[in-house]
Amino acid sequence: MKPIITIILCLLFSSMSYAQEKYLTKNGHTSFFSSSPIEDIEADNNQVLSIIDTKTGKIAISILMKSFMFEKALMQEHFNENYVESDKYPKATFKGEILDFVTLENTSEVIIKGNLTIHGVTKSLETKAKIKKTEDHIFLEGSFPVKVADFNIEIPSVVVNNIAKTIKVSFNFDHKPYTK
């Protein structure tokens, strides 16, 4: 009998002790901004999933492409149909690490390093971000440039002047403790 109790206790204890080590958000905000002489295009996504493992500083982000909201409905359709091909590549992902996460001050600038996958193409990425850690929140905010051509996204010649070659991607995540 006693070993069983031990097992149960251990199980309880182990899950509890690890529970606070992951911080998750399901409604992170990511937007991108393309600026060209003809028009500015902006799209927002408020359903971004991001998770941080506080033990290792590892971070994983998953973005559903169809959740990007554009000002013009037709733009959104063309974005999904022709540019990022959301049927074939439904998600953009980032897998990486927040450097020196464990030793960080509660509010500081960090470097995030990892691999960004968009449109089925993976590129390494290193960017600065601001971080703020509190008891039950981890805020992460930053932006970085993305070259459209790097991810095999074609821009047809008729709209080549409407879409910037490098777009600015911004993110803002409010992670909360993740419990199963």
Partner: peptide
Amino acid sequence: KFIILLTILSIGNVVTAQDLFEILDEETP
């Protein structure tokens, strides 16, 4: 008991080492 404890602890570790993306997939609405 000690061995059991160790086993359990290591299982616990395996669980936490679960790929972060698996958690994201589970949590995707």
